[in-house]
Design a protein around this nucleic acid. Sequence first.
DNA 1: ATAAATATATAGGAGTCCTATTTAAATGTG
DNA 2: CACATTTAAATAGGACTCCTATATATTTAT
Lengths: 224, 224
Amino acid sequence: MTPFDALSTPVYRRLREGLDRIGAAMRADQWGLAEDSGLSPTQAHVLAFVAGRGAKGMRVRSIAEHLGVAQPTATESIAALVRKGLLTKASDPDDARAASIQITGAGQEIVRGIGLAMTSTERALETLSSKEQTMLLHLVIKTIRALQIAGAIPPQRVCISCRYFRANVHDDAELPHHCAYVDAPFGGRHLRLDCNEHGEADQGALDQAWKAFSGIAYDLPMSA
Amino acid sequence: MTPFDALSTPVYRRLREGLDRIGAAMRADQWGLAEDSGLSPTQAHVLAFVAGRGAKGMRVRSIAEHLGVAQPTATESIAALVRKGLLTKASDPDDARAASIQITGAGQEIVRGIGLAMTSTERALETLSSKEQTMLLHLVIKTIRALQIAGAIPPQRVCISCRYFRANVHDDAELPHHCAYVDAPFGGRHLRLDCNEHGEADQGALDQAWKAFSGIAYDLPMSA
DNA sequence: ATAAATATATAGGAGTCCTATTTAAATGTG
DNA sequence: CACATTTAAATAGGACTCCTATATATTTAT
């Protein structure tokens, strides 16, 4: 305990405020994209999420949960995207209550277009060294995982919780992990946040993977 | 270049998506706070910002820029807060065009109340080890600084750009930095994002401080 | 069969947030 | 000093967000 601890707000508070500042930049970015694509930030979000989840039709509810908004909000944004011809909405054959939302060709076109641009936030992240980026990716994934376990956000298909993930099994410091799905080694910088090949691991494998993942040493300077 | 680089989106893209996921949790948190305090997320934001900027009256414009929203949006939120008696708005004596916005006692009370609660995002950040938290704080600060330099967000009174900041001058690994304002050593975990005692450094000092700051080595395991 | 739970839609309302424009004051120029 | 320019904020108007509460249809459980 130093004099400064008494003068400081808790670290978690300043971290949250810092993420919030980055969030302000991201919000401004999203309105910029809106101009180009003709979509509001929320609509762009919905479209990107559906695009990323492959061919299976999405439910309204899971879209709402992913965005962190109430279900009627998602209903409304989806309706707007359907009107624009970027999504289709059909009744789920397996459950007549539920909707099956899919992206259209035009929708994929828009997502591709958005993906080409680099936002000011992404440019800022690019100024970090490659090693810093990898470290930040680790820390972000850990935070996301903690949010998932706490139930604050819905499950995300991250490598860490994947049955095909083998943490830290190779000697190569650049590519210590292994993906049993594609059967290839990969590195911290390749860790995914929402992988289409993801299969949920059972609890035991998960604990083990998490432990191996957490033990990774970073003997790197902050710059590089 | 490994096979996985070809399969992966760029790291900056996944970082942005990850920050976005955390942002979804933060958004949900903010609506939760709204219930307790009777404020909308934007209003709470405005109030917290004015509260943090001490006694000097704020301008509408700087509030808008801080939030990353258009000026009329800020005008509207400020008006709501004035109606609720949490802010006051007066004409700036030095410039009759400009407004001088200050927080009231009731406003400070609300901010204090909001500060007592811990959000789910903060709890998630708390699950990181103390060293990870410090690392993340560094990386967040660097990213914020990059955003400032790019003009994506307005100047923030971070230690790094402060004339009182001496980066990395002490041998104590826990408290390597020095604050010449309070004349005391402090550590990475104490770095501030928006300090009231901040004085902008000149360019030369700034470059030097940045360099010293960047050279900090992190020979820590990710867990701890 | 009937009750409970689930998926979505609808209604209603406060608030967000934009662009474009207006008002007023400060600044800069011939 | 008049006049144009710039700057700070307010206003107008409109699309969208986002909530809670409730209604409807369907599935699941008893």
